[in-house]
Each structure stands twice: as structure tokens, then as C-alpha cells.
Amino acid sequence: MSERIVFESWQLVFPAVGIVLFMGVFLWVVFRVTRMKRPAVDHMLQLPMEQESSRPVSHVRTE
């Protein structure tokens, strides 16, 4: 079962590319996240919390 397919060596490069990319981006993201400024984090956290009002649908749109 361990040798179910024969590949030319160049095809082995694909998993390596993927894993190197993943590790690189993962480490970079973790590094950046730890350096995120508190005001920037607070700003993002508040984005879903913004208040709104409502208006009946018959109202003429302003935008």
C-alpha cells in the first residue's frame, strides 16, 4: 500500500511548497497579531456594535 503510485521527483515539490508557505504565513500572522495596537483592536471590536435606526420601506431612499 505504501507505493501505490510512481511520481517523478519534481512533483514532490508541491507538498513542500505548501507547507513552507503555510508555516511562513502562519508565523507572520501570529507575529503581526501580537504587535497589533490596542486602539486598532478596539476599533475593529466595535465595528459590529454600531447602532442604527430603522425606517419604513415606503420611505424615499436618501442615498
Binding site: 500572522v29 483592536v41 459590529p48
Partner: peptide, 29 residues
């Protein structure tokens, strides 16, 4: 989830930093 959970609980998401790592790790893996 990241939008409606904070809205329903009336408090921001627990960790925005974690959400960033969550996104990139999930998308890559």
C-alpha cells in the same frame, strides 16, 4: 458568527487577535 454573536450578546467578540489567527489558519489548512 463574528457579527451576530457580539450583536446578540451586546458585547464585542472575545479576542479580535484570535479571530485573525483563526481566519488565516483555517483558510490555509
Amino acid at each position: 458568527m463574528y457579527y451576530y454573536m457580539p450583536k446578540a450578546a451586546d458585547r464585542p467578540v472575545y479576542s479580535y487577535r484570535l479571530s485573525v489567527v483563526h481566519f488565516w489558519s483555517l483558510v490555509f489548512l
